[in-house]
Computed example of a mutant assay.
Amino acid sequence: MVAVAGVAGSGKTTLGRALAKTLGAPLLDLDTMTNPLLDSLPAEALGGHWLASPHRATIRDGRYAALLTVAVDVVATAGTAVLVAPFTAELQKDDAWNRLRTVADVRVVHLTGAPDLFAERRAARGADRDRHRAPDGPSTPPSIPVISVDAELTTEQQLLRVLVALDRRSPVEAPNPLFAAGFDAVLFDIDGTLADSTASVLRSWRRFATEHGIPAKAVADNHGRPARHLIDLLLPADKAEAGLARITAIEIEDAVTVRPTPGALDLFGSLPDSRRAVVTSCSAPLARARMAAAGLVTPPVTVTADDVRTGKPDPEPYLLAAERLGVDPARCLAVEDAAAGIRSALAAGCTVLAVTGTSAAAELKEADLVVDGLDRVRFASRDARIHLIVGPGNGVERSY
């Protein structure tokens, strides 16, 4: 059984529905089950709206009792369920958590995010119940094991991460011609490939957009392209330099939230500096900040937006990385997570391994192979060349 938790406006219902559909599991949403009844009761009978009622604690206990009672029957007949509720008390190791665990073995997905994001979403949906909701209190970290997912991500991006955490993995396509090839070097993208920075990118551009009164959606439509490309689209020419400096500052400040993607530390660390490079649309300072936050050492050969005239999807970044390593780009494997990066690497003559997380597999189909995590593969050295092999979990083979 999976429980999706989060405060109002975190997107837990949307994620819960997507997860239930993907898993083929019944969906039990606390609001859907209990709100129609509570909304039909006269406010005077409760001493005010049920969310603000002096009986709020008792009402809360009754709502969760109804949810768990139904969940017992559903799990007994269907075998599993996806439960959606704030689960505020259940996130702490107390009686509420113990009651939830009596229903079935449960994995908790916890949606986290900035309070201003949740407030914006509640204001945008204009639901009557939000007028009676008490302001969010200080956030208390869960004391139970959770799968933490950033609410800045799209529902599809959240779902991709949850499925990996639940070990609902996509099979690696084998045999694939890529596994028979040998490479002189591996060229890695950073954002979404080595570093799970997608939420940081979205959060940073949302804040930038709020400051400048412009749509934030543009960043999602242009993932993998340099910041200057977005700035030129969003701001007039006379404000471009100041805008670029501002978004860089915001992104560097937020870089502390970045973590490595599954398998990135082992896969990247299994190669010597002479056989690896980083090719990113970040500026050099931002690339260093995100690599450091993800626990990755920036290699000597690092191509950033500061080093090229034309960024991805142009081939220039990958051509320059191969040149600096002294290898033929046709004998390089590029590791990417976005369509723009894949096209850049292919145009340079590289073979491409793509990883989902920022985009679903269908959006990465131009790559030679798509995996749902870098922990699905590893590198081995044979005949002085690098070979990609299917790996058990995070296993690596260091034989250089």
Rank of each mutant, 00 (worst) to 15 (best):
I59N: 07
R131E: 04
V162I: 09
W205Y: 15
F183R: 00
A354I: 08
L68T: 01
A338G: 09
V106W: 05
V162G: 01
R107T: 09
A294I: 10
E152G: 05
L159M: 10
G62S: 15
G192A: 09
W97M: 11
V109F: 01
T140V: 15
L319G: 09
V74W: 00
A292V: 06
A361Y: 04
L15W: 00
R125L: 01
G243M: 08
H387S: 05
S53M: 06
V82Q: 05
H229L: 10
Y400V: 15
D328C: 01
L325A: 12
H55L: 12
T248D: 13
E336Q: 04
T34A: 13
V106T: 14
R275I: 07
L202N: 10
E316G: 10
R276V: 06
D128C: 05
A165D: 12
D337F: 01
V186R: 13
D314F: 00
C282M: 04
R129A: 14
V106Y: 02
T261S: 07
V75E: 02
K365F: 01
D307I: 07
D105F: 04
T358K: 10
R99Q: 13
D130V: 09
A305E: 08
P36K: 03
R309E: 15
P315S: 11
L68R: 14
R376T: 00
P177K: 01
T77I: 09
A5V: 15
A52W: 00
A20G: 08
V2C: 07
N222F: 02
T155Q: 08
V186A: 15
A322C: 08
H223L: 15
I190D: 11
V279H: 06
R398C: 12
R121C: 02
L163N: 02
R60I: 12
R288P: 02
V108I: 14
A20M: 05
T154M: 03
T280C: 03
P54E: 15
V396F: 01
L67G: 07
L30W: 03
G9V: 01
G295H: 04
A249H: 13
S344L: 08
P135R: 00
S270H: 03
L364H: 11
E363Q: 11
K239D: 13
R169T: 13
P138M: 00
G48R: 09
L320V: 08
D307Q: 02
A52G: 10
S399K: 03
P135F: 01
D191P: 00
H229R: 13
V70D: 11
D150K: 12
T280A: 02
S204M: 05
V327H: 03
T298G: 05
V335N: 01
S359P: 07
